[in-house]
Design a protein around this nucleic acid. Structure first.
Length: 589
RNA sequence: GCGGGCGUAGCUUAGUGGUAAAGCUCCAGCCUUCCAAGCUGGCUAUGAGGGUUCGAUUCCCUUCGCCCGCUCCA
């Protein structure tokens, strides 16, 4: 939980984000819109850098991952298959008396006598209220009890001396409309849909309903076969995607942390089922302890792959300036796991408002592809030539043992979909015999990260305030955003020492133009040099280049050298202009 | 969605039923030989809508947004 002293820190960060152009409230001039945020000039650069680094790390720097960019609106059946339509829309009801909220379909059914009231009159003021209210009493309870509850209800609405009007009774069986705790009427069930709904085509009717995707992952599953067939990849391999997702969050909170429109960076990494690995390699490697397991190996089972991706992701965060110590690894307990997940690790970051999830790395078995196979009727199996060959050479006992294990796992999935035991048995046996011929539905490891959360983590982690006392003894606070150079929105500030010396300005512009094609530079000639340094510190610019009279040759041996200033400690060093590109290149990439 | 708090310039704050104030920031000019120097000038605000009133930033209502708690959290 957030501690009181931390709240002002968050406020300072929000304020800085606006002042410096990292994050603005969406639709600000119209009063804003809850749960939506825009990135300003610095924020946009920061976010671009982060997404690009993720993309390069996950796809271009690897042999075994390819990319995808899918649409935000997809066939509504996808969300049926994924389970989002069902799990994202719970009907909710509130107790009219206590405001307590219930899942409408999970209210314990009540039977008894319902006392309906049409309204009430305040005997003191004569004011009348025509708001109906009802109380359900178990059979045999005295009616007075219902009237007292109703009076409480009308008192809450400002009638001090409520005289009940229009009382009538009704026998009720197994109703979910009343609060089991006090008998008070609940509000009408209201659907609580976390998915944004829209309509495709000009006619806004139920046949044309579609949803803005609540996660990017499903597109990867839906396009699995197309990618497999065109990318010349084979299992194990991954498909990565970066893109917007939308959730109609109940309570957007904590600045950009929980937004209604947000961006995800997701990888679905497809692997062989353990039974296939055992058939091919004779064994399945499992983790021998914590830490990075090293280069992927053919005998790795899902647990190895899972741990591998957890460690890979932590390495990524380290590479952009979030040290391991700023993160927390949380292994979800069995009872917390989603029904399809075998294991999930949350990578948490210590935000000022609490330790919160940045990324989840889930081992999702073959659930997702199986769901789409079932719902679309299209096969999601891959053919694994190596498996087919290896299987044929196995002893019959081994074949049977592996097939049985595989069948048991398939059966567990099939029964969860509601298939009767007999049918599930039959289908599972069929799936197991397919395995022996080299066919299976791949399992998947899913590292899924929130871009905007990561941006917020980088901003809060970079934020530092220093108390500085100047020569006059005046105290002031200086803010430094200590971004890792790789993610910093602006890489280099370029400054002529003085603005009113044209020869300095001219040389500074030349150096700016020298660096500009390679790095994001910001040229500034306004105000004192110290002020310009301070401005760049607040933007998180890691390096400053200052052009002075020595650059022009005032001291002959320093001709064509510049001051390079380091953001975090103010350290300065003298570098030759000709060395700048290489020097920065080695520090910014 | 419920309850509480808050909403004055880009930021931080002042103030009043009767001309809306300041510091910082920002912009322009002058000046300035390395860490928010100085001088001059300038832009910019009562979240939105309605009501009461001769007159509302101030009082009332509604609404939007932010913060805290509850609820929710695939």
């Amino acid at each position: 939980m957030a501690e009181a002293k931390d709240i002002p820190v968050m406020e300072k960060i929000v304020s800085l984000c606006k002042r410096r152009g990292f994050v603005f409230q969406s639709s600000d001039i119209y009063g804003g819109i809850n749960g939506f945020w825009d990135y300003g000039p610095l924020g946009a650069e920061l976010k671009r850098n982060v997404k690009e680094l993720w993309w390069n790390t996950m796809t271009r720097m690897r042999e075994d991952v390819v990319g995808l960019e899918a649409t935000i609106i997809m066939h509504p059946q996808i969300w049926k298959a994924s389970g989002h339509v069902d799990t994202f829309s719970d009907p909710m009801s509130d107790c009219l008396l206590t405001k307590k909220r219930f899942r409408s379909d999970q209210v314990e059914p009540q039977s008894g006598i319902a006392y309906h009231f049409a309204g009430a009159r305040d005997t003191a003021s004569g004011r009348e209220l025509n708001e109906p209210f009802s109380v359900l009493l178990p059979a045999g309870k005295p009616p007075e009890s219902a009237r007292r509850t109703a009076q409480l209800f009308y008192q809450q609405r400002g009638l001090a001396q409520a005289e009940l009007l229009g009382e009538r009774t009704e026998k009720v069986e197994n109703s979910q409309r009343y609060n089991p705790e006090n008998g008070a009427l609940l509000t009408e069930p209201r659907p609580f849909n976390l998915m944004f709904k829209t309509y495709v085509g000009p006619v806004a009717d139920e046949d044309n309903v579609a949803y803005l995707r609540p996660e990017t992952a499903q597109a990867i599953f839906a396009q699995f076969k197309n990618v497999l067939e065109t990318s010349r990849q084979k299992v194990p391999f991954g498909i990565a995607q970066v893109g917007k997702a939308f959730r109609n969050e109940v309570t957007p909170r904590n600045f950009t942390f929980r937004s209604r429109e947000f961006e995800q960076m997701e990888l679905e990494f497809f692997i062989r089922p353990d039974e296939a690995i055992e058939a091919i390699c004779g064994t399945v490697a499992t983790p021998s302890g914590p830490g990075h397991p090293g280069q992927p190996q053919p005998q790795w089972g899902w647990q190895m792959w899972h741990q591998y991706w957890v460690e890979e992701r932590i390495r990524f965060y380290e590479s952009i300036g979030l040290p391991r110590t700023s993160l927390e690894e949380y292994w979800q307990k069995p009872e917390e796991l989603a029904h399809y997940a075998r294991a999930t690790v949350d990578l948490l970051f210590k935000f000022p408002f609490g330790t919160q999830e940045l990324e989840g790395i889930a081992a999702r078995s073959d659930f997702d592809l199986s769901q789409h196979q079932r719902c679309s009727g299209k096969s999601m199996t891959v053919f694994d030539e190596e498996l087919k060959g290896a299987w044929a050479k196995l002893a019959p006992d081994t074949q049977r043992a592996l097939a049985d294990r595989y069948a048991a796992a398939r059966k567990r999935y099939l029964e969860k979909t509601g298939l009767p035991t007999e049918a599930a048995d039959k289908q599972a046996a069929e799936d197991a015999s397919q395995l022996g011929r080299g066919y299976y539905v791949p399992h998947v490891i899913e590292p899924s990260a929130g871009v905007d959360r990561l941006i917020l983590a980088l901003i809060t982690h970079a934020f530092r305030e220093d108390e500085v006392t100047d020569e006059k003894g005046k105290k002031e606070t200086r803010t430094i955003m200590r971004f890792h150079p790789r993610v910093a929105p602006v890489k280099i500030g370029v400054f002529p020492l003085l603005k009113n010396k044209p020869e300095l300005v001219k040389r500074a512009e030349e150096i700016r133009d020298l660096l500009r094609p390679h790095f994001h530079v910001f040229y500034d000639e306004a105000g004192s040099i110290g002020r310009r340094y301070a401005r760049q510190d607040e933007a998180g610019t890691p390096f400053g280049v200052t052009i002075d009279f020595d650059t022009l040759g005032e001291t002959p041996e320093l001709r064509d050298t510049v001051t390079v200033r380091h953001r975090d400690d103010g350290r300065q060093e003298r570098l030759a202009v000709g060395d700048l590109l290489a020097w920065f290149g080695s520090r910014l990439r």
